[in-house]
Nucleic acid binder design. Structure first.
Lengths: 343, 343
DNA sequence: GAAATCTTTGAAAACCTTTTCGGGAATAGT
DNA sequence: ACTATTCCCGAAAAGGTTTTCAAAGATTTC
């Protein structure tokens, strides 16, 4: 342990190029007080030794490590966090920055531990990555570097949060159903404890009101599961056999709904059109029929968060809530006359 | 940019405690050449200033950063990588180490870039995280620190790889079906390009041979999708209507198979018992009926990989392939006489 | 031809923490 | 009382890079 590897240091490069470390440093850092010939010699030497500047030593001087801490809350429920993470990592990669990832597993103590661990590693900034678009207590007080919240919203309006636009997504779905001429639209969704569920339901009602249509039955809140989708569908059809569309709070629910409808002898989309939410490929694309659904654009959300983190690192701090719009993905579960080639 | 934050340094702590930095260091590092009273004073001062030792500066001296690089290949197909990652992170967390995560997206150039970036950050070791248990070219030549391969296997026998035991898992499933008295067992699985698919099929045949049973029909290779599961089931029943069990290569396939069987008027598990693979909760537990399946124990696999990485960091380098056993999760799709209260 | 200016280079300082080494003080033993 | 021992503290070094500043060299101007 502690056995240190043979590291190629700037001194080695300088020696090989026959210059001083100072000159070598300047040559490699694109400063212009160095003669072209010398620079070339240094660069060549660096390549020959496959020299990698030691980021750590540099950070002691320049103060930045080109590393951001990414704190997730519940990576095991990874469906949402991963795309955001990927989008973020993408955007970071272009800037030659790296990600230090920690997963707090929804535990406040563990989170504090990780925040300290990341700060000890001199990260330049933090991205707090939520997993359900929910409001949560601000952590910015404990963190002396810029923080951006992604797929969750800080309760401190001075923070910057980038969240998915649930209301907007639901409006897309609702307007799609209305534009198809459906009149008897119902809503089956997940846990009412989730803001996403409430926001989407509210937006649906809003659109229906504007179109002069009723919401058939109450919005049915339950769990985010196929099981609940099946159960709710049976219940709904028992009381309202005349529905012609169901907007579901998630693809998982929609998958259960579709199954139950088939069992009950209704065809999708002819008798009942279905719209899901999340565009979870494995369920949405493999469903019978494939589901029209709302994609949350999570990768873009992650990229947006990173962009704003960079701005903050440059001293340009924004605050408030940015709502990242989703987009409607039309598949057969609403496309009556063959797949609509809309994009 | 480059604006360095006000960092509490050991000097500040020492000053506040009225001792030298050396004494402060010793006091905080639990070395015993410091008077209890002095130590207490230092610790108190450190807490008052909420001092965080600068891990980076320390690493310049001691040579280790307590950070490992985790290089994934395709995080977007996250289903498999995430549990491994979580298990690894868990094991690392206990050792106060951190994870630097990079996702190469299956691109060799990007991978090289990340390896260099991580090396520049002085990571102590690497975990190469695969996503399909496959053999792949060794990267250890380009990496001057210990490397462990997880959920993939290096083609260099000098490397250490920790993979899921596909043959063992398939044996568990096959023996389960045999022990239930099923005699007409078929196999529907995914892409034959995957070693996992071939290994599982081979192990199944092995178990059946040992029990004196035939494999009904050929092993049906296709895609890892519900769609293929449905299609293959229809084909299978057309030629072999008398099957009484199907071992599926994944839960996704099993889900499609189950659906198709129901459509075709067969009951599960009475007429046909089903075993899936992966224990992908969303599909396996929500299926009708819930699926008996093989859990790959991926979290444990990640933890094992980390344990061996630590060993290697301590100079105790192993090599070869470690096969992490899976475990059978029994649910209703094979439990004929009511749910078995096994745990 | 000499002076002034500009370019290029290298020595040394700075960054922050840990560790080593030597000295000083207190305690115990003779 | 004096020496031997133990215990603790402070000064300084080490680690690799960047930056600063002074000096050397080259070029231009008068």
């Amino acid at each position: 342990m502690g056995r240190k590897r043979a590291q190629v240091t700037l001194t080695d490069v300088a020696k090989r190029a026959g210059v001083s470390v100072a000159t070598a440093s300047k040559a490699l850092n694109e400063r212009d007080e160095v003669a072209p010939a010398t620079r070339h010699r240094v660069i060549q030497a660096a390549e020959e030794l496959s020299f990698q500047p030691n980021v750590l030593a540099r950070s002691l001087i320049s103060g930045n490590t080109r590393t951001v801490g990414l704190l997730t809350d519940e990576l095991s429920a990874a469906r949402f966090a991963i795309p955001v993470l990927l989008g973020a990592e993408n955007a970071l990669g272009n800037e030659q920055m790296s990600v230090l990832l920690c997963d707090a597993r929804g535990d406040a103590i563990r989170r504090r531990h990780y925040i300290r661990a990341l700060l000890a590693r001199q990260v330049d900034g933090f991205i707090i990555l939520g997993d359900n678009n929910e409001i949560r207590p601000s952590l910015s007080r404990e963190i002396p570097v810029p923080v951006v919240y992604a797929y969750c919203e800080s309760d401190d309006p001075a923070d910057l949060s980038v969240v998915a636009d649930d209301a907007g997504g639901a409006r897309l779905a609702a307007e799609h159903l209305v534009s198809l001429g459906r009149k008897r639209i119902a809503h089956i969704t997940g846990d009412p404890g989730y803001r996403a569920a409430r926001d989407r339901a509210a937006a649906l009602v809003e659109v229906l009101d504007a179109a002069g249509l009723p919401l058939i039955g109450e919005a049915l809140f339950g769990q985010w599961s196929q099981r609940w989708g099946r159960h709710a569908t049976a219940r709904l059809l028992a009381t309202h056999p005349d529905i012609d569309a169901i907007f579901c709070g998630s693809d998982q629910i929609a998958s259960g709904v579709t199954e139950a409808l088939r069992d009950l002898g209704r065809t999708v989309p002819e008798d009942v059109a279905i719209v899901g939410y999340d565009n979870w490929e494995v369920l949405a694309a493999e469903c019978r029929p494939p589901l029209t659904t709302v994609d949350l654009n999570l990768e873009q959300l992650g990229a947006t968060a990173v962009r704003h983190l960079f701005a903050a690192l440059d001293g340009d701090h924004h605050s408030g809530v940015i709502r990242q719009p989703g987009r409607l993905v039309v598949r057969e579960s609403t496309a009556v006359a063959g797949p609509i080639p809309r994009r």
